[in-house]
Design a protein around this nucleic acid. Structure first.
Lengths: 247, 247
DNA sequence: CGGGCATTTTGATGCAGATCAAGTCAAGGG
DNA sequence: CCCTTGACTTGATCTGCATCAAAATGCCCG
């Protein structure tokens, strides 16, 4: 009861895009004051997703796009026989639901890996508004395009890298994204399990664990449970570009 | 010289979207007569790409999006160390260059696997026009979204399927796309090499060849070089959904 | 039409990562 | 505080696909 009330209140809170610290990472990046106000009006609902809960599930109709405000989520595609493939991990500023625009219903699940807040962006209103604000339109296109480019990168990883390279790419990518949000680039908390990392990278959890241990033994990183520290950023980067040695 | 002339002439040909048999698969799907004329005016340049030539290369600035009119292409991402990952195969009606909108320059190569014709769609004009024509806008968004959803499907394939399943998914997908374009769904020509199939599926060419031979031995398909016939569509589909037997 | 090169097939062997199997560790609940 | 439970680590073994090798086939071009 108290719980429900709290959620409603949060939903009503006008913590506007114009005063949101993420606006430069998020949808309204690069908009002027006036334009920002229009976006504020469009994004009038917030939702809290508890750890382990779904933001949306595969098969459900698309209600809106979601901008992640705080927290951490994963999205995953599932095969009919139960296999799960994590398609991505999302942090503050990321836009979720982009794969559902094509068919009107979601094709993947989005699950909170820690308590998260999202802003709802009704697709039709976004399309209306982006007809009036060219810079919003082109930024929305940029966001979708970047998602396509990112996915191609993941395909490269899954299709042609060895386990060590995959893990290195994964860690470097996380590091970079934390840095872009003002967090440390060489020390952070892994919010996902080894199994989820494995699913994302096309590896089994044991392989993830072994490879992390191996990196640690080499002095590249230090891991203790979910706490991770990158000790030799350059060495990790070299690992990625050099293809081991079997060119 | 004669060559150059011929290309220029083709570039000038006004074989308009309004009279193009692909319009229902392509960008202008669902537009009215008047709207179609606006799109015609926007798409005023065609190009011919010879087999083996590049439509665009990674790193080059984005000039336009391209709608494939006739022919067959692949797009591939390359790793700095030379490894190539085929990101997709494209046939008539497909839109290429979507991953370059985000950063203004291409992130993958697009190569013709047979002589191909494309229509150039200047991105800025597309954005201008889609501010005037809502159905064009939403269809463009649908196209980008479908590309994201398709990529997620490929990630599922690369991350969690065995070689036989990958090949089966690949053949079924090709079959479906040929059917959508009015060609036979169970007999077609593979325009790419075994190596390119392998690169796309995250397998080596020998594995592709062996797996095809195996399918043939089982009576699921018949292959002779690049000519392929699907004999047991249902059995192929079962192969995909049943995860072999090691659930 | 025939030589040469690229593509494909097929076989033999090796290895990275999966699988199976214990055992350790941290967190939450009675 | 101990017990349970889920997450993680580590070791032993297995296997699917890669790699290496060589022969067969198709195709381009002179």
């Amino acid at each position: 009861m108290a719980q429900t009330l709290r959620i409603v209140e949060i939903g009503k809170l006008k913590s506007a895009c114009s005063s949101c610290s993420l606006s430069e990472l998020c949808l309204p990046a690069g908009l002027s004051g006036k334009e920002l106000q229009s976006v504020d009006r469009m994004v009038n609902r917030r939702r809290t997703i508890k750890r382990g809960d779904y933001l949306f599930r595969s098969g459900v109709a698309l209600h809106a796009l979601y901008a992640l405000r705080t927290g951490f989520m994963k999205s995953s595609v599932l095969h009919e026989d139960g296999r799960e493939q994590v398609a991505g991990f999302h942090m503050a500023g990321d836009l979720l639901g982009l794969d559902a625009i094509g068919g009107e219903s979601h094709l993947c699940d989005a699950v909170a890996l820690e308590d998260s807040d999202v802003c709802e962006i009704p697709l039709h209103e976004l399309e209306n508004l982006s007809r009036e604000i060219p810079s919003l339109q082109s930024h929305f296109h940029r966001i979708m395009s970047r998602e396509i480019a990112r996915d191609h990168g993941v395909m490269l990883l899954l299709g042609s890298m060895r386990a060590e390279e995959r893990l290195a790419v994964f860690l470097l990518n996380l590091s970079q994204r934390f840095a872009a949000r003002g967090y440390s680039s060489n020390e952070f908390h892994l919010r996902m399990t080894r199994e989820e990392i494995g699913s994302f990278l096309g590896l089994k959890l044991e392989t993830v664990s072994r490879t992390l241990s191996h990196f640690q033994a080499e002095g590249l990183i230090s891991v203790r449970n979910k706490h991770l520290r990158i000790l030799k950023m350059d060495a990790l980067k070299e690992l990625v570009s050099h293809h081991g040695c079997n060119g």
